[in-house]
Amino acid sequence: MTTTRFSALHDDSGGPLLLPNAWDHASAAALAGQGFTAIGTTSLGVAAAAGLPDGAAATREETLRLARGLGGGAFLLSVDAEGGFSDDPEEVAELARELAGAGVAGINLEDGRPDGTLTPAPVHTAKIAAVKAAVPDLFVNARTDTYWLPKTSADPEVEPERDPDPVTETRRRLDAYARAGADGVFVPGLSDPAAISALVAHLRPSGLPLNILYSPKGPTVPELAALGVRRVSLGSYLFREALGAAVTAALDVRAGGKGAAAWNVAAPTYDEVQRLRLGGTADVRLGGSADGAEI
């Protein structure tokens, strides 16, 4: 694995890399203003903001547009590229070249498909290998959805039927992705501490960092650190929280309440958000007025 600034953040000596995921310029800049040195994108947030479906290879241009606006800035950027928006390894490699040209440090490639099946492992490994051959310094985080998708069979012409045991299938796929050149591996949906610890032990000989998706119902970041996890992603969590808070505040105001002010949540001021729009990474202290006087 090529050592870069981004890959160095996965060094377990400093604890796990907590990667918050943004969906536009303002959310990324606000997070950077709070000291996050690396930020990911959320494919759900990018897709939903554009009125498009997630996981359906429908947001290639939106993803590239956001990457060009955020890449090469004050923070390191990792892009959630679904399955690379194609099953053609060369097309995925071309996407990687474009992302690297925009200053992106990492890419997340998933093996889940819109129909609820997993991409055959040889197809996904070919994508990983093509990306590493095209852009060796781009950190490839290879994601498997073995804990999320139904236990259906893969294409029998490409590989045998999947093992119904997610533990075995996960290890089989991650080992293949490692051999293809992945720099890290990601298993969303895995939250059982014992299973996480066992997978960390399985990956230890390869040196690959394990990425876990944070869940409010799962282990905390310190608990994940103790289990040996070296990267924790927030995924679409922040986007969904922001969307829920906005709708809840609007409903509260409509009902005669005080909106977010009633919950002692201080929104950024108009000027703070304006500074983000102007291209800075201003320190959004969440200490602004919530009474609407500055809009």
Results as ranks from 00 to 15, higher is better:
5 R>F: 12
16 P>A: 06
18 L>H: 01
22 A>K: 03
23 W>N: 10
29 A>Q: 07
30 A>T: 08
31 L>M: 15
33 G>R: 00
33 G>N: 09
40 G>N: 08
61 E>N: 11
62 E>V: 09
66 L>N: 04
69 G>A: 10
72 G>Y: 02
74 A>Q: 14
75 F>P: 02
76 L>Y: 03
82 E>K: 09
88 D>Y: 03
91 E>P: 05
95 L>H: 05
99 L>Y: 07
103 G>A: 08
114 P>M: 10
118 L>W: 00
127 K>C: 01
128 I>L: 04
133 A>P: 02
134 A>R: 05
137 D>W: 02
149 L>F: 12
154 A>T: 01
155 D>T: 08
156 P>C: 11
158 V>E: 09
160 P>T: 07
172 R>C: 00
175 D>M: 02
175 D>P: 00
177 Y>M: 11
182 A>D: 00
186 F>Q: 00
188 P>T: 04
190 L>P: 02
192 D>L: 06
192 D>R: 12
194 A>Y: 05
198 A>R: 12
200 V>I: 14
202 H>M: 07
209 P>E: 01
217 K>R: 14
227 L>Y: 10
230 R>Q: 14
235 G>E: 04
244 G>T: 10
245 A>P: 03
247 V>Q: 13
257 G>A: 06
258 K>R: 15
261 A>H: 13
272 E>A: 15
289 S>A: 15
290 A>M: 04
293 A>N: 14
293 A>H: 13
